[in-house]
């Protein structure tokens, strides 16, 4: 049945599980909104996969060219927001921390009210913004953002979590608009095979993009920053065309 699906030009090993994405390669999202509010991008992924470090890198790379703010969702108090402040990537008034009551996935998916309040408060206090990054608390492979909260989402996994993670799938890996496989510099140390991860990610995600990243070797997170920049540019262009 794999061979009957479009876009499948690769072979599968006998130990591989079937695809779970209902429509591989088909973008399930509505067109980007073109309203006055900022583009909202959610960044999710398991604990320790490098979400906060990626947010810090994006702030350093994009902070000078875009009007940018960040909402963090910590399992415990404001650890991630404090990390961003200590690293000086954004002024304090551009960072809000949301507390999630032991349920990080609830705050980004089932009951998004505290996150919406934080985004709206940032826009009210800072004026118009181009981009708001919403970082989820570290969770598991099933955690995804509500489309009522964000426009696009990035899912971050790392090679040290095991090269089978893309194969395991789950909504984060299969449906995120961008999958980031992080910490590639660790691959030789943990025996992770990046070609396996790439092949499995493609099988799970169809045409949805996947990038490999090492913030040690690429502190600017260039491929992710380029992806974000293209979304902001497309949105601004669409807003100009419709206005």
């Amino acid at each position: 049945m794999h061979a009957e699906q479009p876009g499948h030009d690769h072979e599968h090993g006998p130990d591989e599980v079937p695809h779970t994405h209902p429509d591989p390669g088909v973008d399930p999202h509505a067109p980007l909104t073109t309203g006055p509010r900022a583009l909202r991008i959610g960044i999710g992924g398991p604990v320790g996969s490098g979400k906060t470090a990626l947010v810090a890198a994006l702030c350093r790379t994009l902070g000078a060219e875009l009007r940018l703010a960040v909402v963090t969702n910590d399992i415990y108090t404001t650890e991630d927001a404090d990390f961003l402040l200590r690293n000086g990537v954004l002024p304090a008034d551009r960072i809000r921390a949301v507390e999630t009551g032991c349920c990080p996935h609830t705050a980004i998916r089932d009951d998004i009210s505290a996150n919406l309040d934080a985004v709206e408060d940032l826009e009210a206090s800072l004026g118009p913004l181009d981009l708001v990054l919403v970082e989820s608390g570290g969770d598991n492979l099933t955690a995804t953002f509500s489309k009522g909260l964000i426009d696009r989402q990035i899912f971050v996994v790392d090679v040290a979590g095991g090269d089978k993670v893309p194969r395991k799938g789950g909504p984060g890996v299969t449906t995120a608009d961008l999958l980031v496989i992080n910490k590639t510099d660790l691959a030789p140390l943990v025996g992770a095979d990046l070609t396996v991860m790439d092949r499995d990610a493609t099988a799970r995600r169809g045409a949805l993009p996947t990038v490999f990243l090492s913030l040690v070797e690429d502190p600017a997170a260039a491929p992710v920053a380029d992806w974000v920049r293209a979304l902001v540019t497309a949105r601004v262009a669409a807003a100009g065309a419709s206005g």
Binding site: V98, E99, T100, G101, C103, T106, A107, D110, D111, I112, S113, A114, D117
Partner: peptide, 12 residues
């Protein structure tokens, strides 16, 4: 309790 009204983050 599943009403998305922010209650899950408060312990009272």
């Amino acid at each position: 309790g599943r009403l998305p009204a922010g209650g899950h983050a408060h312990s009272g």
